[in-house]
Nucleic acid binder design. Structure first.
Length: 941
RNA sequence: GGGCGAUUAGCUCAGUUGGCUAGAGCAACCCGUUUACACCGGGUAGGUCAGGGGUUCGAGUCCCUUAUCGCCCACCA
């Protein structure tokens, strides 16, 4: 039947029913909506707006609205930040679907569920995109200079940022946008510079002249992980340098041989050991060479001729041999992959041309013994596909072997103050199970990688990124930023504190206990290199400061603008444990306004920043005003400042916290290092830099370590390992408890989706348009176990679009059937219905356990199956007969059963299909005050 | 060269520590349409669990082996 006609008939019939069936009329207000098939396009954006406006993505709101307890267990995830320049692909879609399931499930279980969004500046990738754009206008970055170029990049990045962020919304991600971060913003810059400084001071970051992976195409060095291998055919040439040279050598790269300084043989090789120690002066392809024969047991006598021509400047292995034998290094290839030797035939020739020239020369001179075709894997740069040239350069590295003292350890098996190395830390936290990797087999891969880990080259010769925070003076000596701490403490107990009265801006002296508390603080402050003490002018603060100042031998400076918040009429009244006094003061409209306090805090911050102290500064002040300073300093947005102060865990008397101030080194003729840091350096800090580190924010204390890090297994080394390195070192802690690798999404032919085959790739945005985000989410979950790959096709997504519609229509049936059934009343269930309810409870138990074990692929399938083939096909079908022919008792039993199963399933399905379940929930004729997203997860029985 | 994984219905995959006659979705075929839903219902067919060997009362599941495919790592000149 023609579809339009069909619906026309249905609607017409419904009108008839309304006319002659009064009961239908009472229920129709609820069911009208369900007469048309579920329309995801009409629903999704509207529902997302509803969620966003509710503020429930932010756990602070959940507490404020009494939906969860302030002491509830935290659950936190950071979003693996997509590249600013990216657009949503199926990998992102799978990641967002799974993480949203995790967050929604835990939110419904009453936890403080926080999911932090952000984007990555993706240094090399972004810069090369912008360079390509400019190239179309015939502009090179060198023409316009660093500053101008970066303006172009920033403009481009902020524009594409909005695209990816809106695409994340489309997937239904219940992510807290108020905490959004960017790897290159101010807070993250501070984190990067602090991290760099600490590692430098500990000797873990060093500058060294070493062989690095040079990408001639991208004109930058890259780390070992950014090098990929491609198999190609190559020619292996066996030859002698000259007629009188005694040993033949083999190579696939004859052009590098003009840089040889030695030939290495095995020390026990009878053929060659008589030559060890000799040096031969000869001329090779017009280039004079001085070749020393060395014995090295790394040489395999069985391979090739059993002798290696050593090129220290252009091979990592050879460089290592050269180190062992103190051989000279001779660079013959430059940054443009061209020859830099004096011989006129070779000078400035590309390496490939030079190879041909040298092979011809070898042939002409009859030095070439034979040529063989071999399989060879060549190194290419991950981003640019340029062929890597190993060349020696002065670069910055992180030393993964060096021992240092870990001051404050939360790591099982490593005590505070114990000596350790980055490598050891990285191994320990996975070996001791503090971090679990799912699926487990990747732990093996991880260990293997760590065991072979070499120092990490972190400097890049590109402009976009965090600039290396190092300055050189005219003697090339190294200078780093100064780091000062401002230590805020609160005064000791005052008389009004003791009697529970709000003092605000009125004066009140310290009690004996307060004086003792101040005295107590001195001990820890003595170790802090304090050179200045500043206090509020109110006596309780001044007295505290002076007690400390006397012990430290420092005169106290009094700043009147540090005084406590003027609370107006509230002053002198009793404290209200439910309400922070600042809130009460604001409500009373008699003291300082929020704007005034915020302004005062900004002035104080500026004044503190401009102090030219060599040591740390101690500031003694008051609870509410310190809270405000701390909030402003940590960029809490204006609209969240009051929440920040309300949730401020009031400082114990005379206890404090730190804020770091970084200042560029001062001095004449200082120039900053022109290089930028590897983008993974800042990504490595992500779990805690997003929470405000290096400031000791509430977020950091509550939400770190994060619970889960969910991503593709291709990021195991790039990102996971780097996060573990940075976090164990800087915080002495783990970044996350569980690593969950989702499967890669393949196209319907089982191939990796790629830009080169756009016809088979599924665009998540088009899929959402056609089938709805819920359907896409289900299709990406069902059957996708962790770490395995999965194929996605339009047919699969379509199947779940039908499922959404099935939910929709089953709801319509239930609502029509139960009429005005009172959902709160108790009913006696028939034997059969009781068993259905028991089955439902069993399902809840099973599913809850599997959710905790991250088996979403199973849960999604079970829910689908139960809803369709048990609830709809059996329970609903049976109820039809009962509701027409059954007794009143049986009808009530059926009403209860239908209602209970439907509402329970909506909750269970919500993490998977949030839009359609929320939309249905909102249309149910019950008095629910909350959105489904914050309903309680069904209780396990 | 080393390591990891996969191989179950035409396709995509489940199958928990070994335990009923090996399951699901999609596709196929047949039947069914006023009565929540045709974005539907009922039914049918389809498998030597890659091959071989072993352990066991019992193996898709554990062990060995072979084959094919996929992925990761690697400085054989």
């Amino acid at each position: 039947m023609n579809k339009a006609l069909y619906f026309a008939i249905i609607e017409h019939m419904n009108d008839d029913n309304k006319a002659d069936d009064p009961k239908k009329e009472t229920t129709s207000k609820f069911t009208d909506k369900f007469l048309k098939p579920y329309d995801s396009k009409e629903t999704e954006d509207r529902i997302y707006k509803l969620w966003e406006e509710s503020g429930f993505f932010n756990p602070d709101t959940l507490i404020k609205e009494n939906i969860i307890d302030a002491e509830a267990e935290p659950f936190s995830i950071v979003l693996p930040p997509p590249n600013v320049t990216g657009t949503l692909h199926t990998g992102h879609a799978a990641m967002l679907a799974i993480e949203d399931i995790m967050v929604r499930f835990n939110r419904m279980r009453g936890k403080k569920a926080l999911w932090i969004p952000g984007t990555d500046h993706a240094a090399i990738a972004t810069q090369s995109l912008v360079e390509k754009q400019l190239a179309k206008k015939k502009i090179r970055r060198q023409d316009i200079g660093r500053e101008e170029f970066l303006k172009h990049v920033d403009a481009f990045a902020s524009e594409s940022h909005d695209t990816i962020v809106n695409q994340i919304r489309k997937m239904g991600a219940s992510i807290d946008w108020s905490r959004e971060a960017f790897t290159l913003d101010n807070t993250r810059e501070k984190a990067v510079r602090t991290a760099f400084k600490r590692m430098y001071d500990d000797g873990l970051i060093y500058r060294g002249y070493r062989i690095v992976n040079w990408d001639p195409k991208g004109q930058t060095t890259i780390s070992d992980d950014e090098v990929q291998h491609e198999d190609r055919k190559a020619h292996m040439y066996t030859f002698k340098y000259s007629k009188d040279f005694p040993i033949s050598i083999a190579t696939t790269r004859p052009e590098t041989k003009v840089g040889d300084t030695a030939v290495a043989v095995h020390p026990d090789d009878d053929r060659y050991k008589k030559y060890i120690g000799n040096t031969y002066e000869l001329e090779f392809a017009g280039v004079p060479l001085s070749i020393q024969i060395v014995g090295d047991d790394k040489v395999d006598p069985e391979f090739g001729t059993g002798a290696v021509g050593v090129t220290p400047a252009h091979s990592m292995t050879d460089w290592e041999i050269a180190q062992r034998h103190d051989l000279p290094m001779k660079q013959v290839i430059n940054e443009y992959a061209k020859m830099m030797v004096d011989a006129p035939e070779l000078k400035d020739k590309k390496t490939t041309e030079a190879r041909e020239i040298i092979v011809k020369w070898l042939t002409d001179e009859e030095l070439l013994e034979h040529t063989e075709e071999v399989d060879q894997s060549i190194s290419v740069a991950e981003r640019t596909n340029g062929i890597i040239e190993p060349i020696p350069k002065l670069q910055w590295f992180i030393d993964v072997h060096k021992e240092f003292t870990l001051a404050n350890s939360h790591i099982d098996g490593i005590k505070s103050g114990q000596k350790t190395s980055l490598k050891e830390l990285m191994l320990t936290v996975v070996k001791n199970d503090q971090i679990k990797i799912i699926p487990e087999r990747f732990e093996k891969t991880y260990f293997h990688w760590i065991e072979n880990l070499r120092d990490w080259n972190i400097s890049r010769q590109i402009w976009y990124g965090h600039r290396v925070p190092v300055w050189y003076d005219k003697d090339d000596a190294i200078h780093l930023q100064e780091e000062h701490n401002i230590i805020f403490i609160r005064h000791g107990q005052s008389e009004t504190n003791a009697s529970g009265i709000i003092a605000g801006n009125t004066d009140t002296p310290l009690t004996d206990k307060g004086r003792a508390q101040a005295q107590d603080e001195v001990k820890s402050l003595k170790e802090r290199n304090i050179t200045k003490i500043i206090s509020s002018d109110l006596s309780r603060s001044k007295e505290t400061a002076e007690i400390i100042g006397r012990e430290l031998g420092i005169k106290v400076e009094s700043w009147c603008e540090l005084h406590e918040v003027d609370a107006g009429d509230i002053q002198g009244t009793f404290k209200d444990p439910e309400n922070h006094f600042l809130q009460r003061a604001q409500d009373a409209h008699t003291g300082e306004t929020l704007e005034q306090i915020e302004y005062r805090a900004r002035l104080i911050i500026e004044k503190l920043k401009s102090l030219n102290e060599t040591g740390n500064v101690l500031v003694v002040g008051h609870d509410a005003f310190i809270a405000m300073i701390f909030g402003v300093w940590n960029n809490v947005p204006k609209e969240r400042l009051m929440d920040h102060i309300n949730s401020w865990k009031s400082l114990d008397n005379a206890k404090g916290l730190d804020v770091q101030i970084l200042t560029d080194p001062q001095g004449e003729d200082l120039t900053q290092d022109p290089d930028t840091l590897d983008t993974w350096f800042s990504s490595g800090l992500w779990t805690f830099s997003t929470l405000g580190w290096p400031s000791q924010t509430d977020d950091l204390k509550t939400y770190h370590p994060t619970n889960v890090l969910e991503t593709g297994h291709d990021l195991l080394f790039f990102w996971i390992a780097r996060m573990i390195l940075m976090t164990t070192y800087l915080l002495g802690d783990i970044p996350f408890r569980t690593v969950y690798f989702h499967g890669l999404i393949l196209d319907k032919d089982g191939k990796k989706m790629s830009k080169s085959r756009p016809e088979t790739a599924i665009d998540p945005l088009i899929a959402i348009e056609k089938f709805g985000a819920d359907a896409l989410r289900m299709a990406m979950i069902v059957g996708v176990g962790p770490g395995s790959s999965n194929t996605l096709s339009d047919e699969k997504i379509k199947a779940y679009k039908k499922f959404a519609n099935k939910l929709w229509n089953a709801t319509r049936y239930v609502l029509e059937s139960i009429g005005d059934f009172d959902t709160e009343r108790t009913v006696t269930l028939t034997k059969k219905h009781a068993s259905y309810i028991d089955e439902l409870h069993a399902l809840v138990n099973e599913i809850t356990n599997e959710m905790e074990e991250y088996k979403y692929y199973l849960v999604a399938e079970k829910l689908y199956h139960y809803f369709w083939h048990t609830f709809a096909d059996v329970i609903i079908e049976e109820s039809k007969d009962l509701l027409t022919h059954g007794t009143e008792e049986e009808k009530l039993s059926a009403h209860y059963t239908l209602w209970t199963i439907l509402t329970t399933l909506l909750k269970l399905l919500h993490p998977f299909m949030p839009y359609v379940t929320e939309e249905i929930w909102g249309a149910l004729p019950h008095n629910k005050t909350h959105l489904l997203m914050v309903e309680k997860w069904p209780i396990q029985k």
